[in-house]
Amino acid sequence: MKVVFKPLLSFSVILLSVLLFTAAAEAKGNPQTSVSSSGEEFEVNHNGPSKTQQISPAFEGTGRTKGQLTENSQVSLKSLKPSSIIGTDERIRISPTTSFPYSATVQLTVKYSGSSSTFGCTGFFVNPNTIVTAGHCVYDQDNGWASTITAAPGRNGSSYPYGSYSGTMFYSVKGWTESGDTNYDYGAIKVNGSPGNNTGWYGYRTTNSSSPAGLSSSVTGYPCDKVSGSMWSDSKPIRSAETYKLTYTTDTFGCQSGSPVYHNYSDTGQTAIAIHTNGGSSYNQGTRVTNNVFDNIKYWSNQ
């Protein structure tokens, strides 16, 4: 009787291929795994896309300022990512900046140990000491984690009505830090003190129960094409809703990365539904607050 080993060999090759693929996938890890500048990794318990809508409401804060502190030094900031003016520039300057939600909008000054440049970004408070921003504002593909980040909430030119704060810990996810995948371009900064109690903070929520396309939204931040430290905003409907991104024709410019893309909901107030990341010739876009993004923001807020 002739024994044929070919099928067995084929099965072994297939099995080996499956095992190698699985091992490679496990080594790469979940792109939504939380990572920090201290080296911590944490797998947040995500319950998948079928989870009901998640909501974290806004808080308007006490409004207490620090006596309109001023600073004379003006640092020339560079942009980490491009953002675009779509057609006519319709941004308006926000002044004064001490009313909510502008008080909870933060100018970020970012430095990397591997670069001699100083970069500008924007962020927004989501609790007393946590600022959400773009992933590329805390982790750069060439230079790694930021060495220092200074946060100035509600800055208005040379005026720092709430003072400035140092970042003490930076967070993002593996999809950004290991792969540079723009679908996972989001992160957070923990700061010293609890300035959010005075400035207030934005809400954030998922929009998986209904498409946000057409929803009126605003993008507010600190562009580097305007007077140093000045806050600008534009409002337009959401253009399209993709799995990981929202797109919009709202005017933005470099250094507005990390700005909140937000809507004023009747139940949660000024609430972020995306984090602005970059732009193009036809539209700008931000990382959508999905269930995974929501869960990570919540986890970072609780640290």
Results as ranks from 00 to 15, higher is better:
T130N: 04
S103V: 10
F119I: 01
P223S: 09
L9D: 00
G279M: 06
S159Q: 15
F170K: 09
P7I: 09
C137Q: 10
T252C: 06
M231K: 08
G39I: 04
A24F: 11
G196W: 06
G200M: 03
G187D: 09
A146K: 10
T133P: 09
Q32T: 03
T33W: 10
G286E: 12
G154D: 07
G114E: 09
P153R: 12
T206P: 09
S240Y: 12
K81E: 14
G200A: 04
S210N: 04
A213R: 15
S194N: 14
Y160M: 10
P49S: 10
D89I: 05
Y171S: 02
G135C: 01
V106E: 12
T118R: 08
H46Y: 07
G144D: 01
T62Y: 00
L20N: 07
T250S: 05
N197H: 05
S79L: 03
S147N: 11
F294I: 05
A241P: 02
F170C: 00
V110C: 15
P260Q: 05
G214A: 07
I149W: 08
L8E: 11
A274Q: 02
M231R: 13
Q256L: 08
T33Y: 09
G279L: 02
G229V: 13
K236A: 07
L16N: 12
Y184K: 01
N291M: 09
R93D: 03
S50W: 00
T122I: 00
A24P: 03
I275E: 06
N47Y: 15
G29Q: 06
F170V: 07
Q141K: 11
N291D: 03
V191L: 12
S172E: 12
T109G: 11
S73V: 10
L69T: 06
R155M: 07
D142S: 12
Y162M: 01
P260H: 11
G114M: 04
V138M: 11
P101H: 14
N284I: 13
G163L: 05
C121A: 09
T98A: 08
V261T: 00
Y262H: 13
P237N: 06
I94E: 07
L69E: 05
Y283L: 02
S164L: 10
Y184A: 00
F100G: 13
S99T: 09
K51G: 01
H46C: 13
S73A: 02
T52A: 15
A188T: 06
T199K: 08
P57I: 08
M169Q: 12
